[in-house]
Amino acid sequence: MTQHRKIGDVILQAEAISLSFGGVKALSNISLEVREHEILSIIGPNGAGKSSMLNVINGVYHPQQGHVVYRGKARDRMHPHEAARQGIARTFQNIALFKGMSVLDNIMTGRNLKMRANFIQQALYWGRAQREENTQRAYVEKIIDFLEIQHIRKTPVGRLPYGLQKRVELARALAAEPTMLLLDEPMAGMNVEEKQDMCRFVLDVNDEFGTTIVLIEHDMGVVMDISDRIIVLDYGKKIGDGTPDEIRVNPDVIAAYLGGSH
């Protein structure tokens, strides 16, 4: 086990979430809890509804039934930028960086929420606007140091290799100082070394900033190693919820992964 901060109370509750697109049921009647400071993994075969679940949590999708309670407040039909305001940040399965911008500018967008200068101050680059640029830049440099990407600061993200792009995306999410971080397949398509680096960063983020992390991952070795708790989805239903050791021996999970009668 990692020796990160003590796992606290439930900060997010999803209650009886159902989501469908036309006739396709993506999620049916899923309830789950996320506790403060924990690393929670969501696993399941392709099309199980893992990414849909993350999209429900940060407001990209609005479920037809059920609701999400975040830090004691129930919310319906919220916009993703409101979720960001409440401290939920995320990365995407397919890298969603701003391709035309440098690494530094990409990470700086993560600080946009902290900036208060209006556009006239920004147009004059005067007073508050200039002060903010410099103080926020200082914070962004801390993130850049933390994720060891100093050498590519000024590089346009489009020119970076895949592994580094994933790391920049994590940096952008971290720049928002989230209380809860949603990672959608942060290690997909990486080689062993890159995966090790990414695991180290995920654990460090959890440890140093106390950030609650919900991640989707297919690499079972990684999932079993770094998770405090695992939730298993299959065909939009929750079939398992527990510690890595409990999940390893759960008969439903074994059936879903190895095949068996549904």
């Binding site: 990209v60 960001a84 940040a89 960086l97 035309g100 946009n112």
Partner: peptide, 12 residues
């Protein structure tokens, strides 16, 4: 311009 969904998720 570059990725509107990601922009909204980051709080824009």
């Amino acid at each position: 311009r570059d990725m509107d969904v990601a922009a909204e998720v980051i709080g824009i």
